[in-house]
Write a protein that binds this DNA or RNA. Sequence first.
DNA 1: CGGCAAACCTGCGAGC
DNA 2: TGCTCGCAGGTTTGCC
Length: 280
Amino acid sequence: MPELPEVETIRRGLDPLLTGRNIIDVETGAVALRTPFPERLREKLSGRRIAGTCRRAKYLGFRLDTGALLVLHLGMSGRIRLEPSAGARAIHDHLAVTLDDGLRMILNDPRRFGSVLFFDSAAAMDSHPSFRWLGPEPLAENFSGPALSARLQGRKVAIKQALMDQKIVAGVGNIYASEALFRARIAPFRAAASIGAQEGERLTAALRAVLEDAIAAGGSSLKDYRQADGSPGYFQEGFSVYNRQGRPCPGCICGGEPGGGIVKTVQGGRATYYCPRVQQ
DNA sequence: CGGCAAACCTGCGAGC
DNA sequence: TGCTCGCAGGTTTGCC
């Protein structure tokens, strides 16, 4: 799934096309996603105007003129596409929102790990269990070294898993956790609480930088991800470590040594990539 | 509470 | 060509 940069890229692509449009119809698929569809979603959305788009962690939000919100999560394999409203239904299409200019926004998700949520207000969303405990947005002003360190305090879990914990910091997934740790030169299996103030600053800056670079590249397209207009993202060409096991580390010459290069390991059941020489 | 594994699903690439 | 196996960008739950 899309991590923060992919969701943000999609949001930026959709925003100018959706903001100000009126919703004239909504269809939901027959099978449920990870969560059931909100009840009477068609009635709740039809006739409403989209006032704007927003993002929180990996959630994509559409603000309505009433103050209510339609919120989508793309799970691992979710995609959004826009097409003329006469377009044919495709397998794994789960939600279709038809707009007053003849465009239709479709959520397609083969693995169905995504979800469709509806909230009557921003406050209702913020208090929902999926949002209530979310950590700070890594691109927000108030995300700082000390703020991160405070959240890592006392945590024995590996720093890589801590970065993927949405309660510690929001929106970071498996790819960008590895990439940020590489940029910060911090070994992924270090205990979260062992990250000192100086390293916390470095990690904060690295996280911000890698997310911003990825957004600038339009996200990373490995398998499923596409931008709102269907085009792929290019940041996978900017990966330093992810999916690059055995290849030379861009930060040192260890790739030239026997057994050198980027190492792949597993933490908490998820693949982790790092350079044992650069990351301490 | 912490840590870990498994569950939810389909698709795809690797290997045979 | 066709099969099986393992793995995939996430989140939640349940067990120890």
